[in-house]
């Protein structure tokens, strides 16, 4: 019973919501609105459980004097202070909860965390752009084209000259590392450049770096994104179907049948 009733509810509601998607009738829309309200109500009850978990976790940490227990004092004090201020003075604009806790504490703290992202991006980019593999080297070149194409200095750079400089850099890298693969790659690039030049009547092709950057973003990048999105859409539908049909039932948790 503990499992079959939730499974039956899941099956009925899953099919009902699927039908709802195809029915524009006001009764169908009202049903959708009603279920959305139910979700909010369930979430409100779950929040009580969540708060209970938070308090229990930190009280236990304090009692056992586990590593970093003093941070739990800050957490519990902040939770208690927020509750008291919210219950005592309300949550309207102008209340201490809004003015002190939200505007002067939470917003700046959130902004600080968000700002850290810039530094993490720099360190992640450094790690990604170390051209240790062929894929990483390709990523480095593509990223360099896009970055240079997006800044003012890149606006006047023909893509051809960019590739010539790149070929020069590869030759130097090949001489330093004595890598056979690097020499083959550089040779292929030089031959490609000569063929391109010949097809352009031995004049520097007019393709500029920003155009190339735009092409990288809108063609290969977009194609890869769409391929991933196809997979995500189908995977999402399949997962939903498995849950609705009760094939995937891990979400039921423990308990007797």
């Amino acid at each position: 019973m503990k499992r079959s009733i939730p499974l039956a509810i899941c099956l009925i509601m899953g099919i009902a919501m699927m039908i709802q998607f195809f029915v524009p009738h006001p009764a169908s829309v009202a049903f959708y609105d009603l279920t959305t309200k139910w979700v909010r109500i369930v979430a409100a009850f779950a929040l009580v459980l969540g708060t209970g978990s938070l308090v229990m976790y930190h009280v236990d940490k304090l009692q056992r004097r586990r590593r970093g227990w003093y941070y739990s004092i800050v957490t519990l004090t902040a939770a208690a202070a927020t509750s008291v201020i919210g219950l005592g003075w309300g949550v309207r604009p102008g209340s201490p909860l809004q003015d002190i806790i939200f505007s002067n504490l939470l917003v700046p703290l959130n902004s600080s965390m968000f700002a850290i992202l810039a530094f993490y991006m720099a360190s992640a980019a450094y790690r990604a752009f170390r051209a240790r593999t062929k894929e990483a080297a390709l990523l480095l070149v593509a990223a360099f084209v896009v970055m240079l194409g997006m800044v003012p200095i890149g606006a006047n750079v023909p893509f051809f000259w960019f590739l010539v400089v790149m070929a020069g850099a590869l030759i130097v890298a090949g001489l330093v590392t004595r890598s056979k693969a690097l020499f083959i790659g550089t040779g292929a690039l030089v031959v490609g450049l000569l063929v391109w030049l010949a097809f352009s009547g031995f004049k520097v092709p007019r393709l500029m770096l920003p155009d190339t950057a735009e092409w990288v973003l809108s063609v290969p990048n977009m194609a890869a994104k769409r391929a991933i999105l196809f997979g995500i859409a189908l995977g999402g539908i399949a997962t939903s179907l498995k849950v609705i049909l009760g094939i995937e039932r891990g979400w039921l948790g423990g308990g007797k049948q």
Partner: peptide, 15 residues
């Protein structure tokens, strides 16, 4: 981060 996810996750781990 989500209280409902927390409830389900706890039950799943226990199971």
């Amino acid at each position: 981060r989500d209280p409902i996810v927390y409830t389900v996750a706890r039950e799943m781990v226990r199971e």
